[in-house]
Amino acid sequence: MRILVVEDDDVLRDGLAVGLHLEGITVDAVAGCEDANAATATAQYAVIVLDIALPDGSGIDLLREWRRSGLTTPVLLLTARNLVDDRIAGLDAGADDYLGKPFDLSELAARVRALGRRVTGNPDTVLTLGPVELDRSRRSVRLNGEPVPLSRREFAVLCVLAEHPGHILSRSRIEDHIYGWQEEVGSNAIEVHIHNLRAKLGRDAIETVRGEGYRMAWA
């Protein structure tokens, strides 16, 4: 899951990037409205975490602008002025959720995941595809009831495929979901993750569609 964080305080921005990364979320972080616009124009995010007070404008205005231009990505507002009016203004401007500062990192991660699930159309945290059971909030996977240890990246790749059952996802689309900007992506990184997933879940778990991409075997 790849999200965008818009926060001008660099310590908090860094904390969000690192902390959410620990929670298995890929984070692109920017400091202002201008950079946020550039980011949403070039990449597809599962969720956007948006601070209200930004140096070059108000997060609420930015959000309103996004909604007007048709951006439907779920947005979680970070509000410091914990006033009801601010929350109402935020929600009315098109926010899907809000969190007051200072917040708990795990709570933020849980809310971000919940928003992400809502977009995929399946609010159940547990996805079941054939013998594979994937718990998105605990980030655990079971095969025929037995826990299977997966690395963070492997889990992320499996998640993307499982959230789009029956769809063929190209390698670059999967990369988009898994890696942030700053991360070096090896040319065959996705192949390696798919290879490892097949070794752990069975050869037939993920199909390769030649020239197009990958697809979950079970829908």
Partner: peptide, 19 residues
Amino acid sequence: SAAHELQTPLAGLKTQAEI
């Protein structure tokens, strides 16, 4: 405004402490 200005660095502190 003062609350906002104080809460943001506190949020940063809290997040970094958690990390």
